[in-house]
Design a protein around this nucleic acid. Structure first.
Lengths: 222, 222
DNA sequence: TAACACAACTTCTCAGACAAGTAGAGGAGT
DNA sequence: ACTCCTCTACTTGTCTGAGAAGTTGTGTTA
């Protein structure tokens, strides 16, 4: 049946531990049994257990403290973005972008510097001009939205945005290809008003316009 | 000057190796020197080198093949959550949570199942009861908010939430420790109204309450 | 009651030994 | 000259044992 596949014991032990963590055997922050008791449980030597723990520590699931023990730091190994986005539909991507960018728009309206305002205007002009192909327009659109996130001056939001927009690019392109019209005057006007709200330091209006924008996107999907 | 900072040798070795990989000492796919020669180079024993390699393997930077050697599989451009959160202040964390959870609250109000509603009620009761220590209360609070995110039925938002709440736990605890009052009746009432909005399928109210909640948190910070 | 000392635990690190797998050199046969 | 096989040197994988270093709770003392 299955190929011989000789996987190292340490890898197998790591997988087994991860499965038990996912199953909820140890809650978040809880201490695992010591290496000494874990080794016989998994049927391997102590150093093998240590290597398995190190592997999971590298993935951010476990953390060790000398003298204290091994602790669960995350319920789940952070899955690769690619894998998550493979399963997620376009709708989920839009909703996540809405979450991040609506908050970012409000913050940008409060914190944007004059230099960032110039970048925003330039990016919006680019967004209007570059409508030759769908790919080009999606990239210009993403660049504009990234300027907003940057103007929010929040490193975590930036990281979140950069984390999955590159990977959702294809989904966006497909959505526009299906949805038909893109770069329309109505769409552009929404973006223009969003920029104006940020320029006017009006967080509520910026957030509202951003929310509306993504709401329309979701609506066009059907 | 600097605190003693007794970081495990294996971690130090991993960081050192990663730095040399980033510096381009070994190209992508290239083979590293053997453990035997790496150990004296780094000034540690062989098992320690192995643990460092395992750690980097868990992060996807290295891969080992028995009999062949250790190979570079990625240059590890992506920054670790831990590192991002180290630099980020509490304010940024709250803003990011606000972004995710406000959207999640609105979606949860539309999509929550009866079973999820039961989980929410149970989690809220837990949140009210568990106020013995700050740690306990933070964990109960996180659990309640996680139920909301789950009820939004959006895998990306779930992933985002799980991605950094475990790591922002300490920051939350410190914030409450400084901020003073926690688990107050006003705080609990806000959560109760949030749950009611979700139960009543009122997305706008749920989003508004969530936004207010995080806004108050930011305000208490000062 | 508060501060200290200690004991029992934990992880950390090293060393040595052998098993298991890989890859290249070199020889035998065609 | 070419192919195939074997053998060898080198690699990672695993286990054991030992002591160092750190943490936590308990009991003792002032």
């Amino acid at each position: 049946m299955s190929q011989v596949r000789r996987e190292p014991l340490a890898d197998q032990a790591a997988e087994l531990l991860l499965a038990r963590i996912r199953a909820g055997e140890w809650a978040l922050g809880e201490k695992l049994p010591g290496e000494m008791s874990l080794a016989p449980q998994l049927g391997v030597g102590r150093s093998t257990v240590r290597e398995a723990i190190r592997q999971l520590a590298g993935r951010g699931v476990l953390a060790t403290r000398q003298g204290a023990g091994v602790f669960v730091t995350a319920l789940d190994a952070r899955e690769d973005w690619d894998r998550v986005l493979d399963r997620a539909d376009i709708l989920s991507v839009i909703e996540a972008r809405s979450a991040i960018e609506t908050e970012a728009a409000a913050l940008a309206a409060q914190r944007r510097t004059p230099a960032e305002l110039r970048s925003l205007r330039k990016a919006l002009a680019d967004r209007r001009a570059r409508t030759a192909t769908i790919e080009e327009h999606v990239d210009a659109d993403t660049a504009f939205h990234r300027c907003i996130v940057l103007a929010a001056h929040n490193p975590i939001l930036t990281e979140l945005f950069d984390g999955f927009t590159p990977r959702s690019r294809q989904a966006m392109i497909e959505m526009l290809r299906i949805g038909g019209a893109y770069g329309g005057t109505a769409d552009h006007e929404t973006h223009e008003r969003l920029l104006r709200a940020i320029a006017d330091s009006d967080p509520a209006a910026a957030a509202g316009l951003s929310r509306t924008h993504f709401h329309e996107m979701k609506h066009n999907l059907r």
